[in-house]
Simulated scan of single mutants.
Amino acid sequence: MSNILVFDSGVGGISVVREIKQLLPSVSIDYLFDNLYYPYGELDEVTLIQRTIAVIDCVAIEHKPQLIVIACNSASTTALPALRAKFDIPIVGVVPAIKPASKLSNSKVIGLLATQGTITRDYVEQLKINHASDCDLVNVGSNELVAMAEALYRGGKISQQRLLDICQPIFEQADVMILGCTHFPLLMECINQIKPPSLVIIDSGLAIAQRVKTLLDARVVKTKAPNDFLNHRALYTKSINDKSLIAALFSEGFNETTLITLPRG
């Protein structure tokens, strides 16, 4: 039976976990979120790369995943080359869905809703040049939306008016909006209540799951014995005192939650 590691700084990667579980129900998933350094969108690039490598290395040594998913746009657009140089197993990153958005757009105006860190990366501009040169790209960067998604996942309430204010530049100009942060699909229900009816919203979750399916050994995935136990674990780097978060994680199907302590040095 296959096991994979999905990584983010917060709970945003849960949106990717859901897609993977839907497509690959016989795969065990360790979900690692580095809540001690959350949010990654506010880290400088050097710190982000060093921290990502350190945390994943600590967990990979013990849990030995067959594949790693970097379910964090900030980490993916910054640390993927360093991660792939470090680890000898497949690593799947998150790419803002600029290419499919350009194909879906009739107006040739597409919007990218992401964190401030993501929209300023050269990587995003290169994606536009390579895959959407015929489109105008409306960039909206908001770290506040990450906090809103975290709060909503824990059962809290968010301001629909504030959500509208943040998304309005895209709503007014584009006919396709890209969710360029894995946290943002957690806000989908709220966004659907305020978006223009004709606006199409896309994210990378399903594409990531499909890539994972391609890379995993199909024979391993398909030969799950009836008594095999799916051990979905939630791993984190800072103690959680929030009972609502623990409850939300167990509701996703995680069997256990574990604090990970990195070695000193």
Results as ranks from 00 to 15, higher is better:
L179H: 12
L145Y: 06
G156K: 15
G180S: 15
S159V: 07
N139C: 11
E172R: 10
S159N: 14
E144W: 02
M177D: 02
Q161Y: 15
C167K: 12
F171G: 14
D165P: 08
V146L: 00
R154Q: 12
D134W: 10
G156V: 04
I170A: 01
I158G: 00
N130A: 13
G141F: 00
G180D: 03
A147T: 10
L163N: 02
G155Y: 13
L163Y: 04
M177V: 07
V140P: 01
A174I: 11
S133M: 14
C135Q: 07
D136M: 09
C181Q: 13
Q161N: 14
D136H: 15
E144I: 07
L152Y: 15
G180K: 10
V138R: 06
G180E: 06
T182M: 03
E150C: 03
H131V: 13
P169T: 04
N139D: 03
D134G: 03
K157E: 06
V138C: 04
P169F: 12
Y153E: 00
I170E: 05
Q168F: 10
M177T: 05
C135T: 13
G155E: 10
L145S: 01
V140A: 00
E172L: 02
Q161D: 14
R162L: 08
A151R: 09
I158D: 02
P169Q: 03
V146H: 07
D175T: 09
S142D: 03
V140W: 01
I178F: 01
L152C: 04
Q161M: 10
I170Q: 11
D175I: 08
A132N: 08
N143T: 02
L145T: 05
H131P: 00
R154G: 08
A147I: 12
Q173D: 02
F171L: 09
I158R: 14
S133K: 13
N139Y: 08
T182R: 01
V140D: 00
R154F: 02
I170F: 04
I170G: 09
P169K: 09
M148C: 03
D136P: 04
G155H: 12
C167F: 14
E150W: 12
I158M: 06
S133G: 04
C181G: 05
A147D: 07
E150I: 00
T182H: 10
A147E: 11
L163M: 11
H131E: 14
D165L: 08
E144C: 01
Q168L: 15
N143D: 13
G180M: 07
A174D: 06
